[in-house]
Every structure is written in structure tokens, then in C-alpha cells.
Simulated scan of single mutants.
Amino acid sequence: MNIGLSSDRRSNVSLARRAYNIRRKAIQMGEVQGQGYVGQALGVADVLAVSFFHAAEYRPEDPEWEGRDRYLLSIGHYAIAFYAALIEAGILPEEELPTYGMDDSRMPMSGMASYTPGMEMSGGSLGLGLGIAVGRAMGLKRKGSSALVFNLMSDGELGEGSTWEAAMSAAHHGLDNLICIVDFNNQQADGASTRMLSSEPVDKKFEAFGWFVQRVDGNDIDALVAAFDAARGHDKPQPRVIICDTVMCKGVPFLESREITHFVRVEADEWQKALAVLDEEAPK
């Protein structure tokens, strides 16, 4: 069974339900360890829902299927969000959710391709994902494959020179099989990314590098569906980028409203409260 583009188009209500499930699973995993990058996970859940259940093509029962679209997680510390999506997609069994971050788990706290089915690259040092994605896209073209390469990266990675070298290479080689997704939540380890090293206007920068660019509300399912469809349907030999402006801790207002930092601390008694808030607003 192929999931994603090859299956029937999912309704946007169904995609919202997928995003809710991803948020819920991320909170559950965070509770296992008493920590985790849940602010980012809650913020990017809509992007992952549309990615996995509308845009990308894969076989849950065969994560190494040669015809799959490659989905790279450049931001290794977003692994908690990515595992939630992999579980929701049926690539990882839900029974493994309580093993998050444990010894011998297939879900270590930072993404590792050698451990986890569906994890296409090992994360850690930031700024590497787009370069790896460029190499994957070039390789697939040489093999005559119609598969796409998706690369999910952070706005903080826009401050890395390697990102822009890769962006220039992708345009030079006309990699129309590459879709880069930037989670622009305006946070990195030392503070707001726009204060640390502003990349704005980031859309104009990518355009100047020769990319097909869209910038959308990354927590708007309708906007995301339209953007992914436009990226796939764009008929010029250009790489594509979707810049997604997201809200940290989206879906849990009491976390959204506190002072947001790169690592959002959740107290021991707040995990269940967060789940209850999500459940109150769950899509029908």
C-alpha cells in the first residue's frame, strides 16, 4: 500500500486530525522522559501531517521501498515530532512510543538513520540537511527515478553557510525533484533567530538563488496543502522551498502564552494538562 500522493486525497479535516494525533503522541513521548523539544513538535505538527498524509509517497510496510519519496529531517532535535509522524503513518508501531529516549530504543532523542525506520539521515550538527538532500536529489535523477526529496530544516540553519552553498548547487543543477521546507518559528538556541543572525527577507534570498518560493502560515492546513500541491506541480526546472511560519507550542494555549525559548520546559504536572487541552479541541 502506498500512502500520500498515490492514495485518495485526504480531506483537510482528516489532515487536521492527523496533526492532532501527532501533537498528542509528541506530548506522550515528552512525558516519558520528562523533557523534549515539544514546543517545536507542537508547532510543526501541521507541516508533518500534510507532508506525510498528502504530499509524500511511501509504503509503511516497506520503509526502504526504492520508489519512495525521501523525507530528510535536517533538524535532529525535532526527532520527537518526526517519531510521532512515523508512528501515525504506521512506519513505527505505536507500542514503541513509551521507549522514546530509552536505552536500545529505535527512537533516540536525536534522529539517527541507523536506528529508525523512515529516518533518512542522522541529525545533530545543523546546516547539513540541505546539502545531503541535494546529493540525494542528484542521485535519484541519475537513476531516472521520479521520487522526490523533501528536506525539513529550521530557520536557525539559514545562518549556516553550508545551507546557501547547497541552495546555490540545487538551482545550478535544476533539481526540480527537491522540496525544502523551512520551519520558521523564530527560535534557536541563543534566542530569536531574527536577532541572532537575521535571514530576512528569506523568501527574496531563495528567489535570488533561483528557487521557486512560497511562504505560508505553517499552522494553516489549507495553506499548506495548496503550497505542497503548487510545489509538486511547478513546471520549471527549479528546486522548490516552502517557508512555513509556525507558532511554538501550537495547540496548547497555556504553553503558547508563556515566554517562549528554544527549549520549552514542561513541569511534571503539565503533561497530562496539555493532553487534556489538546483533547478539548480535537477535530471531529
Rank of each mutant, 00 (worst) to 15 (best):
D235M: 08
S169A: 15
R265M: 12
G210P: 01
N21A: 15
L152Q: 03
R195W: 10
R106K: 14
P201K: 09
G34Q: 06
S154A: 09
A223G: 03
E280R: 11
A268C: 05
L128T: 15
G144N: 09
M121F: 07
V266T: 05
E88C: 02
A170S: 05
N219K: 14
V44C: 12
A55S: 15
K25P: 01
A192L: 12
N151Q: 05
L72W: 09
M102S: 12
F206G: 02
A166Q: 04
Q40D: 14
A147R: 02
M119Q: 01
R17D: 13
P108Q: 10
R142N: 11
I260R: 04
V216I: 07
N2I: 15
A166L: 08
G131S: 12
P201C: 06
G131N: 06
V44A: 07
P63W: 06
L178K: 00
D217N: 09
D103C: 12
S6M: 15
V202P: 07
P63L: 11
L86C: 04
G101S: 09
G43W: 00
P239C: 07
L275A: 02
L73M: 06
A170K: 00
L158E: 07
A208W: 13
S199C: 14
E95K: 12
A208Y: 08
F52M: 11
P201N: 10
Q35H: 08
V134R: 02
N2C: 10
G218W: 03
R24H: 10
R195F: 11
Y20M: 09
T99K: 06
V38T: 06
S162Y: 07
D220R: 04
N2D: 14
G101N: 13
D183R: 01
G139N: 03
L48Y: 04
F150G: 03
Y71W: 13
Q272W: 13
